[in-house]
Structures are given as structure tokens and as C-alpha cells.
Amino acid sequence: MVDRSVLTHLAVEPREELAYRVILRSPGLGPEALALACGFEPGEVDAVVERLQERSMVKLDRRQRLAATDPGVVVERLIEQRLGEIHEELREVIASRNLAEVLAEDHRQGIGNAVPTGVERVEGLEEVRERIDELTFFTHHELLSVQARGAMSAGAIEATREPDLRCLRRGVEMRTVFGAGAMDDPLTAGYLRELMAKGMQVRISDSPLERVLIFDRRTALVPIDPQDSSQGALVVHQAGMLASLLALFERFWENASRPDEERLSDNEQQVLRVMIKADKDEAGARELNISVRTYRSRVAELMRHLGATNRVQAALTARERGWI
């Protein structure tokens, strides 16, 4: 009895695999005997054998006896053929990206015709989220954003997560400035770590911020009421206003810091400097005028702060962050 299919993923039909494996186990069968062994209908076996011969999986000798090609050769040939087919499919899928550009240009022209003044008013939270999703879908190069508040609500994260991930999958460069406290909120911090792991750049600012989204430097979105985003938003297309919003974003970006650039305390800075140059813990403790036990405790705390597992890694991490 033939086991379950193992060649389906290599584009071999079940009845073809059945016939090939029966021939492997019972070499020398003729077509009629093969039909009986496989339970094929009259006339079905000829088409199966012909297909197996085309794939070079079996040979039919002059006496009409079937012999199976070595399985190792067959599998390698099938893999090579399937990889070629997959490569061609991928090429066709990648080539279809040009269609999105054509449709996006039509869409941009439509927006331009519908909004001759350069500013569009969108009212209501759901309408704003739908418009953000639409603008994000047609963003191909860069997405800039400022989240004035540090923490995001669960609803806001749910609404923006998939559009953000979709942009990152397409290779869109994303830069985002968040207000202070973003990394202190577990929900927001988890969301940002997920996006940073996929390529988004994030900075945290202690200064007052203004909410803004800028799509491909062609369209921007700002709230109608900065204190209540549920009121709606203004969608800006006008070049002069866009230039001002871009300059505002870059100013926010330059004055913000990376989430992992949390400054060391004065004590940690001292321990770091001594740890790098001291050969022994006793020497480091003497320089700081503390006990060896206290010195080792502070070194361990510093390493936890840096996320390092040893002192060499801690020193390298501190150097990368520009702290030494």
C-alpha cells in the first residue's frame, strides 16, 4: 500500500505520484498491470505514463515494461523545475508594482482636482482614520509623523498598526517622534519595539510637540483641534504649507533622542569611566573610594542598564551610544 503523498508540493499530481511509487516498488510492470495496481480507469493509465515520461520519472522499454528513474535524480529535477516556476511567478508579482504607481497617479490627480484650494477638511475620528489608511496605502518612499502625546490608546494602536507594518514591508522609510513617556507605557512601548525591529526610526522628545503626519513630502495631515483629535483633521496639499510642516518635523526630530539614549546618572558615568580603565575591582573601588562589594554591585547595575552580559559588551555599548 502506498503511503500519503510526498510530492504534491513539487507539482506532481496524486495519481502520477501513485503510479511512480508503485513502479518503484514493483519494477517491470506493464501499463495494464500498473492500471490494476493503482485502480485506474481504462484508458487513464496511458495519460499518466505519458506524463511520467515527460517528467523523465519513468522509462518504457521495448517490451512495454516500466522502470522508475532514480528517486534522487527525480526529486532534484522536480525541485529545479519548481524553483524556476516560483521565480517566474515572483518576477510577475514584482512587475505588477508598476500598476500601483499608475493607479496612484490617477488618485493624486483626482485629489488635486477635488481640492483646488490645497486644504481639505475631514471631520470625525473614523473618517480621519480611513483617510490616513488611504494616504498610507499610496505612500511609497517616506512617512514622517509626530505623536504629541507619549502614550497611545489601544484603539489608536489597532488603527495604525497594520498600515504602518504595510509601509515597512514595502520599504517605506519611516521616522516618528513621540512625546515623553512613550516608552514608560507598556502598550505603547511594545508597539514601538515591534515597529523598530522592522526598521522604523523612533525618537522621544521632552519638549512640546504638534501632531502631524507627512506622506511622501506631498501631503500632510494635522488635527483641526490639537487638543481633541476626534474633531477631525486638515489634509494639506499646498506646497508652501507643506514646506513649513516639513521644517517643523525636522526641528522636532533633531531635538529628540533615541529611546535607548537614556542618559546615565552621575554615579553611573563615574563607574563606567573607572570600569573601562581599571584592571581589577580593587583598583576601581579605591578610585571611587567605595568598598569592593559596592563597586561590583554598581558595575552589575550599570551592565543591566546597558543590557550587557559582560563588561566588554557594556563598554562597547556605551561607546556606540557616545557615552565614552
Results as ranks from 00 to 15, higher is better:
residue 224 I to S: 06
residue 143 L to G: 10
residue 86 I to T: 13
residue 129 R to S: 09
residue 12 V to C: 01
residue 32 E to L: 15
residue 147 Q to N: 13
residue 210 E to Y: 14
residue 44 E to G: 04
residue 142 E to P: 00
residue 137 F to N: 04
residue 268 E to Y: 08
residue 198 K to P: 10
residue 323 W to H: 00
residue 193 R to P: 09
residue 84 G to P: 01
residue 78 L to R: 03
residue 261 E to F: 15
residue 292 V to M: 10
residue 226 P to A: 02
residue 100 A to Q: 14
residue 20 Y to M: 01
residue 239 A to S: 13
residue 96 S to G: 08
residue 310 N to I: 09
residue 296 R to C: 14
residue 155 G to N: 13
residue 290 I to S: 00
residue 177 V to R: 03
residue 201 Q to I: 06
residue 140 H to E: 14
residue 190 G to Y: 01
residue 51 R to E: 07
residue 34 L to H: 00
residue 267 N to E: 11
residue 124 G to M: 05
residue 301 E to M: 09
residue 126 E to D: 14
residue 178 F to E: 05
residue 206 D to T: 12
residue 311 R to A: 06
residue 179 G to Y: 02
residue 236 V to C: 05
residue 77 R to H: 12
residue 197 A to D: 15
residue 254 E to W: 08
residue 299 V to M: 05
residue 154 A to I: 15
residue 203 R to S: 00
residue 71 P to I: 03
residue 152 M to R: 09
residue 137 F to P: 01
residue 108 R to T: 04
residue 315 A to S: 12
residue 97 R to Y: 14
residue 75 V to A: 07
residue 40 F to K: 01
residue 111 I to E: 11
residue 261 E to V: 11
residue 101 E to C: 08
residue 103 L to K: 12
residue 94 I to A: 13
residue 253 W to R: 03
residue 261 E to H: 14
residue 73 V to N: 08
residue 181 G to P: 04
residue 137 F to I: 07
residue 206 D to A: 14
residue 299 V to S: 00
residue 217 R to T: 05
residue 112 G to N: 11
residue 27 P to L: 01
residue 206 D to Y: 08
residue 271 V to A: 02
residue 265 S to I: 06
residue 236 V to H: 02
residue 215 F to D: 00
residue 38 C to T: 06
residue 120 E to P: 06
residue 57 M to T: 06
residue 303 M to P: 00
residue 128 V to L: 02
residue 220 A to G: 08
residue 22 V to M: 05
residue 207 S to N: 08
residue 296 R to A: 07
residue 72 G to Q: 03
residue 287 E to R: 13
residue 187 L to C: 05
residue 6 V to W: 10
residue 207 S to Y: 13
residue 141 H to L: 07
residue 250 E to D: 14
residue 144 L to M: 06
residue 89 E to R: 15
residue 196 M to T: 07
residue 35 A to H: 07
residue 125 L to M: 13
residue 98 N to S: 14
residue 224 I to C: 09
residue 309 T to Y: 12
residue 229 S to K: 08
residue 166 R to Q: 07
residue 97 R to L: 11
residue 291 S to E: 05
residue 301 E to K: 07
residue 25 R to M: 12
residue 311 R to V: 05
residue 140 H to D: 13
residue 54 E to R: 15
residue 21 R to D: 06
residue 220 A to H: 02
residue 299 V to K: 01
residue 305 H to C: 11
residue 133 D to V: 05
residue 27 P to I: 01
residue 277 K to W: 12
